[in-house]
């Protein structure tokens, strides 16, 4: 089981957080933690998502990137680490 930290930038649109969480669960990633805030000036939300899975993080990044309201998905390699399940 590997831990990953994603930083996601998204338009502040309806249910964008639900969409991210639904894709994360469906694609086989467990959520360890989440922080979310919106810049009301730019209407861009920033979501920090801590997840863990046996699967490659690229599979999740590609799927989140497909969501219409997503602007950017980055994997924070310094915060991602391998752990014993």
């Amino acid at each position: 089981m590997k831990n990953y930290q994603l930083t996601i930038k998204a338009d502040d649109k309806q249910v964008v957080l639900e969409r991210i969480l639904q894709v994360t669960r469906y694609r086989g990633f467990l959520i360890s933690g989440i922080n979310a805030k919106v810049n009301t000036g730019t209407n861009v939300g920033t979501i920090e998502l801590m997840v863990r899975s046996e699967r490659s993080i690229e599979l999740l990044v590609d799927q989140i990137n497909k969501l219409i309201d997503i602007k950017e998905v980055k994997v924070d390699n310094s915060a991602s680490q391998q752990s014993i399940a």
């Binding site: 309806q14 639900e18 969409r19 469906y26």
Partner: peptide
């Protein structure tokens, strides 16, 4: 239905 649509559409609006 907006919530239900998340898993069965490419995108949805309300």
């Amino acid at each position: 239905i907006f919530g239900l649509s998340l898993a069965c559409t490419k995108h949805s609006f309300q």
